[in-house]
């Protein structure tokens, strides 16, 4: 014991921002699906099962994709960005309570905890997306995405929207239990209104006017433009999901200041 104390190793200048976020991502990965036999494989199995279920529903209900594509790739192009958006929100909301004491290890910050959770979801879903699309291309004879970069851009917009709204929800959740319980209810309609099962070109003009305000719809349609050659959507403005994500992100930083000041005043830290 005394020997190792004597060594008194030269201190590094602590860890860098990037290192801390990476370490927190590693911690999130190790702790998220603990206890089950499949462990972290659940992070990949859940979205795959989700896609399989929706494709199955397509067959059972006799729904024909509008773009003369295989149902698998059509569903994947809609549901992958949706899951990325939804999982990023869930991860952010989970991260604050589960990592609240990590801020004792300065300079770990709330921003780093939330960023690590969001990046972990982006990484997971990138792996899932490549695996799912690759499987569909190989086993269902679907063509490769026409513009992979555009598809990736759409996915990143869906993720960014999840980062902004997730951060907002994580902080709001610390202020109000009612809000935390309301989030699934608030988000449920998005599953049906964001073009997971249909494209914007199938909709009448009156619906388009309303659904223009669904930022996730824009992100999903950008993914579809990347997937399907010649497809141009009337709802694929990247500014809408980007600005919405940015808006919620900005509001969340103000809320964070309020939350921390409130908890301090109440002696809750």
């Amino acid at each position: 014991m005394d020997r190792s104390l004597d060594q008194n190793p030269i201190l590094n200048n602590s860890s860098s921002f990037f290192e801390r976020v990476t370490i927190l991502m590693h911690r999130e990965m190790r702790t998220r699906f603990v206890g089950g036999a499949l462990g972290y494989a659940w992070a990949y199995l859940t979205p795959v099962a989700w896609i399989a279920f929706v494709v199955g529903a397509f067959y059972v209900l006799g729904r024909v994709p509008p773009l003369l594509m295989s149902p698998q790739i059509f569903v994947a192009s809609g549901i992958l960005p949706y899951i990325l958006f939804r999982q990023t929100i869930s991860a952010s909301m989970r991260a604050l309570p589960s990592s609240r004491y990590m801020v004792y290890f300065r300079p770990v910050s709330v921003a780093e905890i939330l960023l690590a959770a969001s990046l972990m979801e982006l990484l997971n879903m990138t792996i899932v997306s490549v695996a799912v699309v690759g499987t569909i291309v190989v086993f269902f004879d679907a063509p490769m995405p026409a513009d992979p970069l555009k598809a990736l851009f759409g996915l990143i917009l869906a993720w960014w929207l999840g980062v902004g709204f997730g951060r907002f929800s994580a902080i709001m959740g610390r202020l109000s239990d009612t809000y935390t319980r309301s989030v699934p209810i608030i988000l449920r309609p998005l599953f049906w209104l964001s073009g997971v099962f249909f494209t914007a070109t199938e909709l009448p003009a009156s619906s388009l006017d309303v659904l223009w305000y669904s930022p996730l719809f824009h992100a999903i349609e950008i993914v579809r433009e990347g997937f399907f050659l010649g497809y141009h959507s009337p709802l694929s403005n990247p500014v809408v999901p980007f600005a919405t994500g940015l808006f919620f992100y900005a509001v969340s930083t103000v809320l964070e200041t309020y939350w921390q000041a409130r908890d301090k005043r109440r002696g809750l830290l």
């Binding site: 190792s4 190793p9 201190l11 590094n12 200048n13 602590s14 860890s15 290192e19 801390r20 370490i23 590693h26 911690r27 990590m102 290890f105 770990v108």
Partner: peptide, 13 residues
């Protein structure tokens, strides 16, 4: 190990 890495220290040590 996680805390050590956050503090810029060798986890093994």
């Amino acid at each position: 190990a996680i805390t050590a890495r956050l503090m810029g220290q060798s986890p093994a040590r």
